[in-house]
Design a protein around this nucleic acid. Structure first.
Lengths: 252, 252
DNA sequence: GAGTGGTCTAGACCACAGA
DNA sequence: CTGTGGTCTAGACCACTCG
């Protein structure tokens, strides 16, 4: 029976957190205190907290301290149903619906402008590298905790001078507005990857580099198979689960 | 102009790896060598390698060393098309197809038996906690690199004594065999989460705890909406991307 | 047994948040 | 200013892999 390793200490603290010994959103004991409690040094406690951060149980901000993560139930993003018209019009959009379902309060910012899209987005939209598009950038919160960044890119020939360059979008969101403009989306595709957050993302989403984000590249196509909108969702993995469901075509 | 931090060192090595200075699959310089090169200590180099591991660029095994990750292009899992009958029958299954598309050689093991499923799986299948089901456990490799663990659970009243308890499954895979038995799946759902690997997963998938796995809980339903099969895919995030695409129902 | 990374100690300085 | 975590040094012992 040796000394507890950092994994053992993490296991002890994990049990305490899951048992509710620390209030959600409250400050965790400082590293020197934990070091004393477990008869070790800050370096080891650092490792312990890295484990707990990776699991999404705590979250650390330099200078402030480590807090017990406020959001234990994960937000569920149901990709297919969220783009049905019914869902879009209910509860002012899919995100609002998803967050309210957990009993939390949704909120979001929107910034509208023009910018050169990332190279991969430009390639999907078939716009020349370096050419500007309309960007509608949403930043989303649940109970004031930032939980998602989602810039949306639309080619200029579709969006320039239209309601898509305005902040107010009305019921049904973007997909409905584009349909009004004659660009009805009939097919969606999403590609999911996972990576560490970059500096800006880590900053806004209050994440450490021990945590990860989903990157969902969502593309909407019109009936003539033109990609008319790309939305890149960046979401901390410890706040979200992703759902997809579909019918199996018996003929194929 | 201070000393380079571990992030700076990581950035230098990242560029070197991406420029192809190290052969894929070859050993990376040992920590003491890197410490000397950058005028620092092993502790700092440890941090550097943690960053590179998190990005999936290198992979470390204790006692052996750090290797430059063999697989730069990620395997693409297209959830919807992989369950179409055409795809299933092509190239001996969806996994084979996905891997061959990258020019790599797929391989997989299958273990068939009975076991008590995890609680969440039991709940989905509506079987009593503690009751056994048939488990078909696949372990998958690409060019002999382990890339996925996927146990599949089927209730006993469906699978007991059938071909589903045998190792050889024939063309079209499980879904076709279950259809033959009168359990045709007409609807699929998948729920995606991300977490650090547990000890067994880290061991088999040759991952460190700095890396993450997707956990995809796939459920197949028959026409009377009964869940007849649950498959839990565990896949390192740095080896895979996930694709979904669907038609938008204009009526809804 | 030699060489690898995993982990730990003891101590230090720094960046940052908040009163 | 005080207290927080971020990062680093210098050194040590251990667990594991492989020849």
């Amino acid at each position: 029976m040796g000394k507890p390793s950092y994994r053992d200490i993490a296991a002890i603290l994990r049990r305490e957190i899951e048992a509710g010994d620390y209030e959600r959103g409250s400050l965790f004991p400082p590293e020197p205190v934990l070091a004393e409690r477990f008869g070790t040094t800050r370096a080891t406690i650092n490792n312990v907290l890295r484990v707990l951060r990776a699991e999404g149980l705590v979250s650390t901000q330099q200078g402030r301290g480590t807090t017990v993560t406020a959001m234990t139930p994960r937000i569920n993003r149901d990709a297919i149903s969220r783009y049905r018209k019914n869902s879009r019009e209910r509860a002012r959009g899919a995100f609002d619906y998803e967050v309210r379902k957990l009993g939390m309060e949704p909120r979001s910012d929107l910034t509208v402008g023009r910018a050169v899209p990332p190279a991969d987005v430009a390639a999907i939209l078939n716009v020349e590298p370096g050419q500007e598009v309309v960007v509608r950038s949403r930043r989303m919160y649940a109970d004031d905790v930032p939980v998602q960044i989602a810039p949306s890119y639309i080619p200029l020939d579709i969006a320039a001078g239209t309601v898509l360059e305005q902040s107010d979008q009305g019921p049904g969101g973007m997909v409905s507005r584009m349909a009004d403009l004659g660009y009805r989306q009939v097919r969606m595709s999403e590609r999911i990857t996972v990576r560490p957050p970059d500096e800006e993302e880590a900053n806004f989403l209050q994440m450490s580099t021990d945590q990860r984000v989903y990157v969902i590249t969502h593309v909407g196509y019109t009936a003539d198979d033109r990609p008319v909108e790309v939305c890149v969702h960046v979401m901390p993995t410890h706040y979200w689960t992703l759902d997809y469901s579909w019918e199996v075509d018996p003929a194929e």
